[in-house]
Design a protein around this nucleic acid. Structure first.
Lengths: 110, 110
DNA sequence: GCAATACTGAAGTGACCACTTCACTAATGT
DNA sequence: ACATTAGTGAAGTGGTCACTTCAGTATTGC
């Protein structure tokens, strides 16, 4: 499945920005509207909206507009992709260390 | 400890680039010299060296120069910071859902 | 010693990114 | 109906980023 591979880059890129991480942090306490989300930051509402778009495209945040207010909540998809990627690297890394350990044990038992 | 917080951004930023992820992927199979690492990519050795510097500063890669050849291997530090950050968000998220579940159960039990 | 190898440093370039301003639409409160 | 609130769209700007070229320095093989 190439769909996961395409997205990892987006997730990493999204979380590379401190403001976007702060947004995620705030949202992990519960859903919020765009303007409520924007108040603590000293940047424009527009800027926050742009960040939210990036977060949404990377599957970290889901937003839904009802009436004139858009409510934002965290989404698991982006995080899953992230954890999967890290898990894959980790298992590859550990498998390698295992083989290395085998080799060392082998060379020592003669 | 603010030191971890300062670094998370660097790690995310480092892994936001596809070439750097490919480098990490190659290194997860075992240590490599800079030039051996560079051959599969159609970018300059210089560019690869720059990527390696970013990866090293983010604690994902450790390099050591012996003679004229610099050997690169993966480092756990960057990955740990990453996993810790995700774990923190996850636990905060799950704690919230638990509280939400409690509230729903409470309102339903009258 | 000399040539090839394996990088390193500095400076430049074009693309992308975060952020802004301004103008606009749509829903809501009174 | 009218003002306020909540967000959207487009266009511009400054800074950062990936990448290049070119010139230079150690190290190694012959």
């Amino acid at each position: 499945m190439p769909s996961t591979k395409v997205k990892v880059g987006r997730v990493f890129h999204a979380l590379g920005d401190p403001t976007r991480r702060a947004i995620v942090e705030k949202l992990s306490a519960g859903p919020l509207s765009v303007s409520r989300l924007a108040t603590p930051f000293d940047i424009t509402l527009t800027a926050v909206a742009q960040h939210l778009q990036v977060l949404e495209e990377s599957g970290l945040v889901h937003t839904e507009k009802v009436g004139r207010v858009r409510t934002c909540r965290l989404e698991t998809a982006g995080f899953s992709i992230l954890e999967q990627w890290i898990g894959d690297r980790r298992s590859m890394w550990e498998r390698r260390l295992d083989r290395l350990g085998d080799l060392l044990a082998e060379s020592g038992e003669e």
